[in-house]
Write a protein that binds this DNA or RNA. Sequence first.
DNA 1: ATTTTTATAGATCATTTGATCAATAAAGTT
DNA 2: AACTTTATTGATCAAATGATCTATAAAAAT
Lengths: 208, 208
Amino acid sequence: MTDAAETGETSSRRRLPPSERRRQIVDGAVAFFAEVGLDGNTRDLAKRIGVTQSLLFNYFATKDDLIEAVYEKVYLGRLSPDWPERLTDRSVPLRRRLLDFYTEYSTLIFEYEWMRIFMFSGLYGAELNRRYLKHLGDVILKPLLGEIEHAATSGASPVMEDIWNLHGGIVYIGIRQHIYRTPCPDDPSEAITRAVDRFLMSFGIGEG
Amino acid sequence: MTDAAETGETSSRRRLPPSERRRQIVDGAVAFFAEVGLDGNTRDLAKRIGVTQSLLFNYFATKDDLIEAVYEKVYLGRLSPDWPERLTDRSVPLRRRLLDFYTEYSTLIFEYEWMRIFMFSGLYGAELNRRYLKHLGDVILKPLLGEIEHAATSGASPVMEDIWNLHGGIVYIGIRQHIYRTPCPDDPSEAITRAVDRFLMSFGIGEG
DNA sequence: ATTTTTATAGATCATTTGATCAATAAAGTT
DNA sequence: AACTTTATTGATCAAATGATCTATAAAAAT
């Protein structure tokens, strides 16, 4: 079976608009590097996409540039800008807000490519990774802390580490699934609901 | 500065007993691969250890064999065999047992080399990684579930995913510290204590 | 002291791999 | 239909890299 056959191409040399070809390369690179790691080689990547290896360097000067594009692609739009607002909308019960957020967020991030690229880029010290986590902390988790503080009725008041703990416990489901590839619930929503409820209960937050 | 100077060697050719040299190589490889990733090259590794690159292949037939030795070294003895017993010793309050376990366990695993080798090996699908997690689940977390069930006084009874959630929330501290290299508490024990207490409280478990 | 053994170094091989460049053909233009 | 443009290919380079092999010197054995 030829590469052309694999990608459904019919001619051996298909000429695409540069923007489209670029997108195709980045998409292929995301899938490829997520699977084999960022040290995957450009020949295997090209074969998988169905183009020549040299073509990659027509669109990206270096392999690092391509990886940078992979980062951008994967990280882009992962954090919806309307969440800060929705998370602090006190006309909605806090439990509802939390569940809505983590239900949406988990479907966004419990995804093979994102999870693995995120982890690889983190391990290799990518700037984007740290920026993302700082951003997450600033625009999601810090406001969340404020909401918990506001709603808390029991004596103990939450600190930032508590929020990270809630977050980490949930994210860890995705890590088990896509990094360690260990048995996991197919639908994490129940586990998430239980985690959120435990968290709220511990601060004396009920239905309000 | 020569390599010999870096490692404190005086002669340019120091002859060591094979067992000692092997240990030196594995130790160096653990530190090296943890830092730069498993795709780090053998020349840099050898330079760092202070030996020639060819010597590595006198002790390990292939680079993969060396990495396998790195895995063994890092994974070995990470799960103390007496924890299952201590975790189920009902003469000790459950809270105490949980705190003791996670205090000890976190000092063991919140370690640069372990955290990163574990993550790299997980990403690359190492068999040892999955074996370790299965073992952890079987001999630590499952018994833990039994203890929570036994002590729970509130209506809701715990399921295995709840235990993984507790565990993941704690492990995530180490991930933030060593994988993402993001700001973290220097001493995680307070965060751990709070997480454990929240967890117990949500199942109606107090001081008993 | 002399010989033997073997841990280590240095040189080198064979692939792998990122990157380059001229030739080519597919699409657009006149 | 002829011409121009340029996306793509195929061949190739240069460096990196895992691995091998022989010479050597540091111990051990005699």
